[in-house]
């Protein structure tokens, strides 16, 4: 298997507070990697650096062999728009738009015509068990439904890498596991690489592998032979 995304000795500080102090991690194509760690360990910062949202103060981030950290903001934006997908903890749906429009948003942003974008978005509703909710607004969806819509939005543009930042953090355990189940199935089906940030072991257990972030460093345990 080949490495699709890699951070090498990445450091990053918020003002005087260091968040990452030399974090290194490599993600293989098609892999589902859980990034674990206590609050404030820097796991979200690591995700942001990997996704090209934040630019590390030193170190390298490589995506498909290209230096993400060296790209200008516009290029990183289009990378995020076209090659990456995102699922956040909550509140990423635009309240004015209907669920199906929210899902179609990444396609529209990439310039797909509305006539093509909406049916493509609509196809995800059946897949994630959201039939009949296409015209709802985010305020009219339950937490689990909203996260599934968010998942559809993250995957609709068929990204190479899906970044999921505590995707079940605002859900109860049963709903959270349901969302994770769908996420893993969909990602496997599409061959999408997933980087899953979570502090919950049961959620991390859906991944193929986990790394621990502690004090701004990545602690990758050796693989345990079964």
């Amino acid at each position: 298997m080949s490495v699709v995304l890699e951070a090498r000795d990445v450091t990053f500080s918020f003002g005087q507070t260091p968040a990452l102090r030399g974090a290194s991690v490599a993600v293989e194509a098609g892999e589902i990697l859980a990034v674990m760690g206590p609050s404030g360990s820097g796991k979200s910062t690591l995700l942001h650096c990997l996704a090209g949202i934040l630019v590390p103060s030193s170190g390298e981030v490589l995506f498909d062999g290209a230096r993400v950290d060296a790209m200008p903001e516009t290029q990183r934006s289009s990378l995020r728009r076209d090659r990456f997908g995102f699922v956040f903890q909550f509140g990423q749906l635009v309240p004015e738009l209907t669920a199906v429009e929210n899902v179609a948003l990444p396609l529209l942003l990439s310039g797909v015509h509305r006539k093509q974008a909406l049916p493509r978005a609509g196809a995800w509703f059946a897949r994630l068990g959201l039939d009949g909710l296409e015209q709802r607004r985010s305020g009219e969806l339950s937490g689990g439904q909203a996260q599934r819509v968010a998942l559809a939005r993250g995957l609709v543009a068929e990204p190479q890498v899906l970044f999921a930042d505590e995707p079940t953090g605002a859900l109860d355990s049963l709903t959270g596991e349901h969302v994770m189940d769908l996420l893993v199935s969909a990602a496997r089906e599409q061959g999408t690489t997933v980087i899953l940030v979570t502090h919950e072991a049961r959620i991390a257990a859906y991944a193929d592998r986990e790394v621990m972030v502690r004090d701004g460093r990545v602690n990758a345990p050796d693989r345990i032979a079964s």
Binding site: A51, D82, P106
Partner: peptide, 18 residues
């Protein structure tokens, strides 16, 4: 009011100009 969805959109690659 829409601070969070907007900033998350931006993180997902929507340019500020949108």
């Amino acid at each position: 009011e829409r601070r969070r969805p907007f900033s998350l959109l931006r993180l997902s690659g929507a340019p500020v100009r949108v």
